[in-house]
């Protein structure tokens, strides 16, 4: 019993305990919270954040940060929607290049991966702090989104495309399947592969990793590329769910994903954390958002509550680090 209640075990299960208490409180305060439709709705909504946060976890594990994921999400969603709906016109050659759903999705994911790779390249090649490099990308990607969309939403993307955001497969929403697949691969990569071990090693001690022969720059570029690609996947899911690519989509998504990572117990100084912890963090953020809406809390207060929860999570994380 003592072992269960000791400090280390509490630290390990703190996000699960927080999630349980949150669900318990909300189910008492709102009779709608525990309804099946509401729970599926929460899962559908957090699926995009889970994808983005999975990429963010890999970055934070290397002691980095990516502030551009929200803008990358918007740009990739817009590119996918734009190519699917309008294709590319080449008037000089009287040519129209149309894109199938597969082509549009691939283009979106490749764009996200490219932007992520560019982030990684800028960070490793020019030693720009990740915070600054990705902050710059946040603005650049948002600007490209405005240019691509002309400031207007791109809607009416067809029923087949909507399936990715609103469809059901074997009684479970399709976005949930996608996020489960993403999480499954990420868990395998971090726990069972060489690059997974490198990611933890770099976050733990970058200099030691470099001296032990790990190509730190290469691993970092790969990690940022993956995160960009996953932001794109999130963007495609959001675009599909809304049947519309909004130019201002993904605003403050970076904060939600960082919050999910931190609440899930991943250390912002790198080297410590897990994908499953982040999943728990994303669920907590999603449940919290949903609960505050169900309880008719003003959107302004929702921001305050979310901020305080993140602050609390960081304080607990610091306290755990000290004790270790």
């Amino acid at each position: 019993m003592d072992a269960i209640l000791n400090r280390n075990n509490f630290a390990r299960f703190q996000s699960l305990i927080a999630l349980f208490l949150l669900c318990l409180g909300l189910s008492i305060l709102s009779d709608k919270f525990l309804s099946v439709s509401n729970l599926w709705n929460v899962m559908r909504q957090i699926s995009a954040n889970i994808c983005i946060s999975t990429g963010m976890t890999l970055i934070v594990l290397t002691a980095g940060i990516d502030l551009s994921v929200g803008s990358v999400l918007a740009l990739c969603g817009a590119i996918t929607a734009g190519l699917l709906k309008n294709g590319i016109e080449v008037p000089a050659n009287n040519l129209y290049i149309g894109f199938t759903i597969l082509g549009a999705i691939l283009a979106g994911v490749l764009t996200g991966s490219f932007l992520g790779a560019f982030n990684g390249w800028a960070i490793t090649r020019f030693k720009v702090p990740p915070f600054v490099a990705t902050l710059a990308m946040l603005t650049v990607a948002r600007g490209f989104t405005m240019l691509w969309t002309g400031g207007f939403p791109i809607s009416g993307l067809g029923d087949t495309f909507l399936y990715f955001g609103t469809g059901w497969l074997l009684g479970i929403p399709v976005p949930v399947w996608i996020s489960v697949l993403v999480v499954g691969i990420a868990v395998f990569v971090t726990n069972k592969t060489r690059i997974g071990r490198y990611i933890y090693a770099i976050g733990g001690n970058e200099s030691a990793s470099r001296l032990s022969g790990i190509n730190v720059d290469r691993v970092k570029i790969i990690v940022y590329t993956i995160a960009g690609g996953l932001a794109a996947v999130g963007g495609i899911m959001v675009t599909s769910r809304l049947d519309s690519a909004q130019p201002n989509a993904g605003m403050s998504y970076e904060l939600d994903s960082i919050a999910a990572v931190v609440i899930g117990g991943t250390s912002l100084s790198g080297g410590r954390g897990s994908i499953m912890g982040t999943v728990q963090g994303a669920i907590i953020i999603g449940v919290l958002n949903n609960g505050l809406v169900l309880l008719n809390v003003s959107p302004f207060w929702q921001q305050v509550v979310k901020g305080l929860v993140i602050l609390l999570a960081v304080i607990i994380d610091k306290s755990n680090s000290k004790n270790e």
């Binding site: 294709g87 009287n94 290049i97 149309g98 082509g103 549009a104 283009a107």
Partner: peptide, 11 residues
């Protein structure tokens, strides 16, 4: 399986 081509004026 990703792209297809058409004449622009036809589209």
């Amino acid at each position: 399986n990703s792209v297809y081509f058409k004449k622009l004026d036809e589209v």
